[in-house]
């Protein structure tokens, strides 16, 4: 795993984007149904496909480019006006596509990963930078963030700095929902830290004097 192209670890001067991605040689495993790498130009089925899979299955390395995702006003979650769950409550509706910034970032860092792949001695190196439209058909990691963001103003945020709802003080929303900005790495550690932070406030402040812990 290299960190040279994540966050602000490199000069963004000419690149027209902020953020970045880590590059890692990450093989999760060789799922026989999901993982059958073939070089570009391989037939999609038939004998040619089969022989290419047999040749390359055990001779392929995956370089992962795992990038940041920036919040924009056009990307949001709301309650679906039509579809409901088993209890008749509205489903959550996600409206999302990659902003220009993230497309440029993915293109830039993927180029770097391809160069690394060539330097590793790969006979065939193929990069697949992110493209629009965002699709649910391809797994693109599932560390979704945002939806009930933390802030210091009830007009522009859902919870205060203790993950306490501005509107209903005995409701605490704990999770990656608190921050809309996914900054390259998986957010679970941040979520854990926020949980400890909220629990400490609940135990040492809220339970002694229930009510809003931040006055506006």
């Amino acid at each position: 795993m290299i960190d040279e192209f994540s966050g602000d670890n490199f000069d963004h001067g000419p690149h027209k984007f902020i953020g970045g991605a880590y590059v890692g040689a990450i093989m999760t495993n060789g799922r026989p149904i999901e993982f059958h790498p073939t070089p570009p130009g391989t037939p999609a089925w038939g004998l040619g496909w089969k022989q290419a899979v047999a040749r390359h299955y055990n001779h392929t390395v995956v370089l992962t480019v795992h990038g940041s995702s920036h919040p924009t006003r056009a990307n949001y979650l709301d309650l679906d006006p039509t579809y409901k769950d088993a209890w008749g409550l509205p489903l959550l509706r996600m409206t999302f596509d990659f902003p220009d910034n993230d497309i440029r970032m993915s293109s830039y860092v993927t180029e770097k990963a391809v160069a690394i792949g060539r330097a590793m001695g790969g006979k065939t190196v193929a990069g697949a930078p992110r493209q629009r439209p965002y699709t649910t058909m391809v797994y693109q990691t599932t560390h979704n963030t945002g939806g009930a963001v933390m802030g210091d103003d009830p007009k522009t945020s859902v919870v205060n700095r203790y993950l306490q709802s501005w509107d209903v003080p005995n409701v605490f929303v704990v999770g990656a929902s608190a921050f809309a900005h996914n900054a390259t790495y998986n957010p679970t550690d941040t979520v854990g830290a926020l949980t400890y932070w909220a629990l400490d406030a609940i135990k040492n402040q809220y339970l002694k004097s229930p009510g809003p812990m931040v006055r506006t």
């Binding site: 089925w45 038939g46 004998l47 496909w49 089969k50 022989q51 047999a54």
Partner: peptide
């Protein structure tokens, strides 16, 4: 059988 056919090395 057409999608992943047998060949002389492996079954399909």
């Amino acid at each position: 059988a057409r999608l992943i056919p047998a060949d002389d090395k492996w079954p399909g």
